[in-house]
Every structure is written in structure tokens, then in C-alpha cells.
């Protein structure tokens, strides 16, 4: 399979001006992802796992290095230098990101939230409704909650909604930042089923997991991180 993502010498540090501090978060990270692969990353908190993801998603601006992404629309592009406009397109259509915490849009119901993700891609209202319903059903989110504001949901419900919102787009590259952290066992299995299904469909994925044994059979490769350095870990 051809490569979907190639990260070369990614370096990121945070410069906090008013505290005159310079925090090194990532040192020369290099990794690559082939199409259809599912790569896991593990490591202690604070080791920089999420920072890698956020650099790929352009929430953080990397200082150095290249992030080559093989886009369906633009071909090989360097996400570190891509125009904001193109990045917005990729976020809407090709790259999905499940964060640890649900970013709640005020006064937006769960159903709307998932529906918006489909509408952003340019689909019609009916299709969006159908997809949203299918996804919420799959994650067994209580039907009563569909038309409620997620602000009042429990941690697990929020997370399921968050994953539903990212997965409903069927992204080409999916970044999962601890998608199973606060879920009970049954929900974890749901998430795993969905990851398996996406894997069968050929979605390339990268995930951060603490409970690696749970994901063991799914991952094609596993990296560990410590102090901003990435190590290869063969299983």
C-alpha cells in the first residue's frame, strides 16, 4: 500500500512569552503510515502523544519538520505549511480527529452535532439526517438524548458522541486521541467494533491508547513515546 502520512523530523516547542519559558514538547519525530494501517501510540501522560496529533491536525504549529499527507484532492501536501483554506477543506473531508474531550457547541443538540459534520461535506439534508441517526444508533446513545444538549451528558455519552461525529464522515485518516479512556467495557467493545469496521473499509487510523492490550490485535504497529521522543515497539 502507498503511504498516507509521512512525518519527518517533527519538532515542537512552546514559547510562553510572559513567563519567559521555552518548553520542548517534541524532538525530531519521524513516523509513517501506510494506507489501511492502524498505528497505536502509547506513553506516559505529558510525553507528547497528543501534541503529535495536534501538530498533524494543525491545532499546533510545528517549529520544524514536515508532515506529508497524501490527500485525495491535493496529492502529497505538507500539512505543516499548507494554506489555512486547504487545511479547512481537509478537516471537513479527509482528516478526522477525536479529541479526549467533546468540544461542545452551545445550544446544539446531539443529533444536530453529528448532522452538521455530514452537512459540512456538502451532503443533502435527508442523507445527513439518515447518517446521523445510523451513527447514534450504532453507539447506542439513548434515544431520549438525541435531541438534548450534550452539555448535560455523562463522560461516556459525550465521548461516544464525539467519536460518532468524527466517524460519520468516513475520513481517510482518523486520529483517535484516547477514544476509550473513560468508557465502560461494553462501550469500549462498541468502539473497537467500529474501529474494526473502519479498518475493513480501508480507513487509515492512528490512535493513542493507555490500555494497549485491549487494542493489541487491532494495531498493525505500536510506537511508544517518552519525553517527546518516539520509539518503535514491535509486537
Amino acid at each position: 500500500m502507498e503511504e498516507i502520512l509521512v512525518v519527518q523530523d517533527l519538532t515542537k516547542s512552546f514559547i510562553i512569552h510572559n513567563l519567559a519559558k521555552h518548553i520542548e514538547a517534541l524532538h525530531d519525530i519521524s513516523l509513517n503510515l501506510k494506507g489501511g494501517e492502524f498505528v497505536g501510540i502509547t506513553g506516559k501522560s505529558g510525553s507528547g502523544k497528543s501534541t503529535v496529533f495536534k501538530c498533524i491536525y494543525r491545532t499546533y504549529v510545528p517549529q520544524n519538520g514536515q508532515i506529508w499527507y497524501n490527500s485525495q484532492k491535493y496529492g502529497f501536501v505538507n500539512l505543516a505549511e499548507l494554506s489555512e483554506r486547504q487545511m479547512i477543506y481537509l478537516r471537513k473531508h479527509e482528516i478526522g480527529y477525536v479529541s479526549q474531550f467533546l468540544n461542545i457547541m452551545p445550544r446544539t443538540t446531539a443529533r444536530e452535532l453529528v448532522k452538521q459534520a455530514v452537512l459540512e461535506m456538502g451532503s443533502g439534508e435527508d442523507y445527513a439526517n439518515m447518517e446521523a441517526q445510523r451513527m447514534l444508533e450504532h453507539f447506542e446513545l439513548d434515544k431520549e438524548l438525541w435531541d438534548c444538549y450534550p452539555g448535560t451528558f455523562s463522560g461516556g455519552e459525550k465521548l461516544r458522541l464525539n467519536i460518532a461525529r468524527a466517524m460519520v464522515k468516513r475520513p481517510r485518516l482518523l486520529l483517535l486521541d484516547e477514544p476509550t479512556a473513560s468508557l465502560d467495557h461494553a462501550s469500549k467493545i462498541k468502539v473497537r467494533e467500529l474501529i474494526e469496521q473502519l479498518k475493513r473499509e480501508g480507513t487509515t487510523m492512528m490512535g493513542i491508547f493507555h490500555d494497549l492490550e485491549f487494542m493489541e490485535n487491532l494495531c498493525t504497529r505500536v510506537y511508544t513515546m517518552s519525553n517527546g521522543i518516539l520509539h518503535d515497539l514491535q509486537i
Binding site: 512552546f14 495536534k54 491545532t59 499546533y60 504549529v61 489555512e84
Partner: peptide
Amino acid sequence: GLTDQILED
């Protein structure tokens, strides 16, 4: 920059 980038980084 992108809004989330301005707010987070």
C-alpha cells in the same frame, strides 16, 4: 490562523 490554533497555540 485557524481559530482553534489561535486559541490553543
